[in-house]
Amino acid sequence: MNNFVQPGKTLDYVHTAVVASGSPVLIGTVLVVPGANAGVGVPFPGTIEGVFNLVCATGTAWTMNTPVYWDDTNKRVTTTPTNNTKIGLVAAPKVAAAAIGAVKLIPIV
């Protein structure tokens, strides 16, 4: 296969704000987890696929494979679709009080 470039799970991105390693940012409709700190307009490696422990809304228990969304206003994962961007699925159950949840990022175009 002569046209294969790379698996594509991690790509170089540029953001309009400072990014911190491990703190997700929404770029277009894709949630990107930076692999390094970067300043405004500075390229950084970002992962768009895989399972991550991410900050999430409390008050709702999660079950496996439930769709999850990025709440860009509050910078956290939620199960509420309204005004949020779909980012993937629940990768492990979580109790309602937990503020961190396992999320399988699935880039959705």
Rank of each mutant, 00 (worst) to 15 (best):
K75G: 04
G46A: 08
W62G: 11
G28P: 07
V32R: 03
V25C: 08
A36P: 07
T78W: 09
C56W: 00
T85G: 10
T85P: 09
V55S: 06
T47A: 13
V95L: 12
R76C: 15
L54R: 01
A92G: 13
K86G: 04
T29R: 10
V19G: 04
V25W: 07
T78E: 04
P45G: 05
G39I: 12
A91D: 15
N84L: 13
K104T: 07
N65Y: 01
K9T: 12
G8W: 12
I100L: 14
A91E: 11
N83V: 15
C56D: 00
A92P: 06
F44R: 07
I27W: 04
A38L: 12
F44S: 10
L89T: 00
P67T: 00
V18M: 09
T66P: 02
P7L: 07
W62S: 11
P43Y: 01
N3T: 08
T78Y: 09
V42Q: 03
V32W: 08
V68L: 08
T66N: 02
P81E: 15
N74E: 15
G88W: 02
V5D: 07
P7M: 05
F52G: 11
A96P: 01
V40C: 04
V40L: 14
V51T: 12
W62V: 04
V33Y: 02
G28M: 09
V33Q: 01
V42C: 00
N65A: 00
N84K: 15
S23V: 11
P24W: 06
D12H: 13
P34F: 03
I87N: 03
S21G: 09
V30I: 13
A17K: 12
K75I: 10
L31A: 09
V103N: 04
V55F: 03
L31Q: 06
F52V: 10
S21D: 11
Q6T: 08
V18Y: 07
V32L: 03
A99E: 14
V5C: 06
G39D: 13
L31H: 08
Y69V: 02
T63Q: 10
V51I: 14
A97Q: 14
S23T: 07
V33I: 11
N84M: 14
F4R: 13
L105V: 02
N37R: 02
L54E: 03
G39N: 13
G8S: 12
K75R: 14
R76P: 10
N53H: 06
I106V: 04
I48S: 06
V25Y: 06
